[in-house]
Design a binder for these strands. Structure first.
Lengths: 233, 233
DNA sequence: TCTGCTGTTTGATCTGAATCAAAGAAGATC
DNA sequence: GATCTTCTTTGATTCAGATCAAACAGCAGA
């Protein structure tokens, strides 16, 4: 792999913990890879053989039951880390929601490198703690929130995380954005059916809280109201 | 704090990563503390001022909505770690489900110590990754499983985690144990109401899958059937 | 322009779990 | 041993969201 210094996520991914020399060493272990929308990188239950940094694109992390029920347990953005270091098996699948570009490492070589670079492990620990906070926040949503609250929470969360990523330089990214999820996937994140998601969105639109210019676009017209509906602390 | 060498969780808590000298240094930062059942150690939204190892007892980690709805997002056993290192605020409360004994540190001094002891941070990372796996497994349960599946999954999980803790030396701990949760708390873990929990347990008992000798005790009579009902991979 | 195809919306109906309500059980306290 | 108090179980009813069903919109290709 070449040119980590040019990398757009150099300073936001966990690599930010490394000096130039260390980054060189790590880069020799990895490779850049493009994946297309819909492609699955890791299958639930498989040996955990790779880990990766996201350079661009959005991916989902999901778990399922043998009869086909699926729950999306995480949505991953540029600069985020995926994979299960220090573990034998992957308990979840990772699938691209958009075309994406990754920086991939074999898990075993990454594990070894990380063990020798505490600053890198520290970054990884911080990210894992944040991811755990997010997962627990979502458990509250899945266990206790109503359909309306769930949709409102998702829209606000997406609005924030997409604007943090800041790919597009558009001024009003925060209030107008393209959802990286279709209706079915929104249902799979929220523990709802596609019909319920659709109905809730229609109602928010009818109430003037949001606009839906096309199937992927959302514009937040009354953010305050959406926040109230989301019942988030 | 004295006598880490005698500590029952010395080899299973994250302290196992430390040498004698290091352990001495860490022990000088902490103190042992007893808490009684029902006592809350950390309040959701408060500054994250403490972290701790559990020596004995069982605690819950919970989040709530202002109107009183509560979700239990984790149940913590001896040798487990609680608190939110490297973060300003605690997003959740921690409350004792039984009388418990903890080994408490101020977060800031623990953070500083951990940063200088990579082996400790490594253990902490592994635990956090395991906790994240568990949280995601539970997201699948909360998002997609039926009431029966949820109860069956909880009983099996409790059976396993309680026997791993292995406090009691009783032979058949795995199939007969005291629940550390009352019915309300079971509901709060599972995203169900108290009535639904009670009805599901009654049905499992009527079907001969489990026995309920008293309000806290559970005996698993047909483990195979319980596993089928839990729909866990 | 028509014809599929895929994803979305809307409507009608059903159902699993919530809610409302009351009766037991098991400890505590006096 | 009687009386509270707290927790649990069971029953009746309701309802939010699931399921079943059909129409609709946007596009790609012929």
């Amino acid at each position: 792999m070449q040119d980590c210094y040019q990398c757009v996520v150099r300073n936001s991914a966990i690599c930010a913990a490394l000096s130039h020399d260390e980054l060189d060493a790590l880069s020799r272990l990895g490779r850049k890879q493009r994946v297309v929308r819909g492609q699955t990188l890791v299958w639930e239950g498989d040996d955990a053989i790779i880990v990766a940094n996201i350079i661009s694109g959005i991916l989902k992390v999901s778990m399922s039951i043998s009869d086909g029920r699926e729950q999306i347990v995480g949505v991953v953005f540029p600069a985020d880390f995926i994979g299960r270091p220090f573990g034998q098996k992957s308990a979840y699948s990772v699938t691209a929601l958009s075309d994406a570009e990754l920086c991939i490492f074999s898990r075993s070589s990454f594990d070894a490198f990380a063990r020798n670079h505490p600053a890198l492990e520290h970054k990884l620990l911080q990210r894992t703690l944040e991811e755990l906070d997010r997962a627990r926040e979502w458990m509250l949503l899945l266990g206790k929130k109503t359909a309306t609250e769930r949709i409102a929470t998702l829209l606000l969360e997406m609005s924030i995380r997409l604007s943090e990523t800041g790919c597009s330089v558009e001024q009003n990214e925060l209030n107008e954005f393209a959802l990286p999820l279709d209706r079915q996937q929104m249902g799979d994140v929220l523990g709802l059916t596609i019909e319920t998601v659709s109905r809730q969105l229609s109602r928010l639109k009818a109430d003037g809280v949001i606009g839906l210019p096309d199937r992927r676009m959302v514009s937040i017209q009354d953010r305050r109201r959406l926040q109230d509906l989301s019942t988030t602390a």
